[in-house]
């Protein structure tokens, strides 16, 4: 059995998006419930939220943007730039705590205290651009973690796999010129789903050319197409890239019963994906894989999806 970290903190529930929003605290509670009711907590190393050094947030986001986010948040406004970005006065601090918790988790993995981890945080991150909050995301959690690994821990090759149903425009844009970070995303085709990026011809640019790979999937497709595209696009790409750490943008919204998008991935399909990612981490990254929550909005399905996700990391 692996030494698996589980980042969870009740302070992640404080980011309140109001009554009509899908990205709600109940999502995290459903995830926690699924993991605890399966009796997995005793097997896990529990990690709590912490505040990060703001310089790591600034390693990805513009200082002016961070400042503006803080100001708008404390001013009591309910939205930040777009109606998608509902917020409360605790949102800024919650977003900081998410980053801090993830960086703490990354330290533990790099120090060898734990083998791998799942970070159940809110708000999500992969749509956030360096200077813009988008699609429920404020700080790009996974991007900050990747930059932390390359800069603080001198990791030469970080592989990111994003299986959220929506393309991670923010993560792609942040690293599209950076050959140290390979960004792979599999998502609903951008002509049909948010945010409208992530087409096959987006492959990175300048020094980062060839270090971005997108597998858009047409609406209605399910397990078979996911398997086919990951075997065709991700496996050979990671074989060449040879990542030293794998980060996962784990969104559970491609599930067939999730109504924010149109995909037909089954619960078993999610397990297949995660099993392959953990296998790849064993082959290339000495088992180092850190998974970070992005989307996933069906409260009835999240407990089981999270439980399976955790069991695969634990390799129990």
């Amino acid at each position: 059995m692996k030494k698996t970290g589980f980042l969870y903190d009740e302070r992640y529930l404080l980011h309140d998006t109001g009554p009509y929003h899908p990205e709600i605290p109940d999502r995290l509670q459903a995830i926690y419930q699924g993991i605890s009711e399966a009796g997995l907590l005793d097997d896990l190393i529990l990690i709590k939220a912490s505040m990060p050094n703001v310089k790591w947030v600034e390693a990805v986001h513009d200082p002016e943007y961070i400042h503006r986010f803080e100001e708008v948040c404390f001013s009591g406004k309910k939205t930040f730039d777009y109606p998608d970005n509902q917020m409360c006065t605790e949102t800024f601090e919650t977003a900081m705590l998410a980053v801090g918790g993830i960086l703490d988790t990354a330290d533990r993995v790099m120090r060898g205290e734990i083998d791998n981890a799942f970070c159940a945080v809110r708000p999500p991150g992969h749509h956030a651009e360096t200077d813009r909050a988008l699609g429920f995301c404020y700080f790009n959690n996974v991007a900050i973690c990747a930059r932390y690994l390359t800069d603080k821990w001198q990791v030469k090759r970080v592989g990111i796999v994003d299986f959220d149903v929506h393309h991670g425009n923010g993560t792609q844009h942040i690293f599209e010129q950076d050959p140290k970070v390979f960004y792979y995303s599999i998502h609903e085709h951008p002509s049909f789903a948010y945010p409208g990026t992530g087409r096959e011809f987006e492959t990175g640019n300048s020094k980062g050319h060839g270090f971005t790979k997108n597998s858009p999937i047409l609406p209605g497709q399910g397990d078979e197409e996911y398997k086919h595209l990951m075997e065709r696009d991700l496996f050979p790409a990671f074989e060449r890239f040879d990542p030293q750490v794998i980060l996962v943008s784990a969104g559970f919204d491609a599930h067939m019963e999730d109504h924010l998008a149109d995909m037909n991935l089954s619960t078993d399909g999610f397990s297949w994906i995660m099993e392959r990612l953990v296998e790849m981490a064993e082959i290339y990254a000495d088992g180092k894989i850190i998974s970070v929550l992005e989307g996933g909005y069906n409260l009835d399905r999240l407990p089981e999806l999270a439980k399976n996700h955790m069991e695969i990391l634990l390799q129990k």
Binding site: P83, G220, H259, L260
Partner: peptide, 22 residues
């Protein structure tokens, strides 16, 4: 917006058909 779940439901409730993307 990313959040189309509620508006989709609302449009269906108003009697509109949402065409299958395919």
């Amino acid at each position: 917006t990313l959040n189309v779940r509620d508006i989709k439901k609302k449009l269906v409730d108003l009697g509109f058909d949402l065409l299958d993307p395919m």
